[in-house]
Amino acid sequence: MSAHPSSSLKLYFGIWITLLACTGLTVWAASLDLGRFNAAVALTIATFKAILVALFFMHLKGASEKLSKLVVVASLFFLLILLALSMSDYATRTWT
């Protein structure tokens, strides 16, 4: 498949190290008191890791066509609809 087998192996191990480091980072960040930003930091790191896995381990980056990317983006878009419109109710209720 790949023209430079050793270069893709290097890439895989590099991503692997990064993912492990991010796991350590997110545990460490959780021990800091960042107020409401704790959740944001944790989710940002998780999303960064997920993107790394998707792009390089699942080969979304080198995908020969854009269709698989479209499928992923569309699914996430509909997930966003579910979350956002549900929250439009919960965030604006005047009763509990």
Binding site: T23, S31, A54, M58
Partner: peptide
């Protein structure tokens, strides 16, 4: 099979901070 495995991994990448790290700091 690899795509499926990576996907399950990604789910866990989210579950870990969402469940374990809600309000950890001392």
């Amino acid at each position: 099979g690899g795509l499926y495995w990576h996907f399950v991994d990604i789910i866990w990448i989210y579950l870990f901070p969402l469940l374990y790290l809600i309000d950890r700091h001392p």
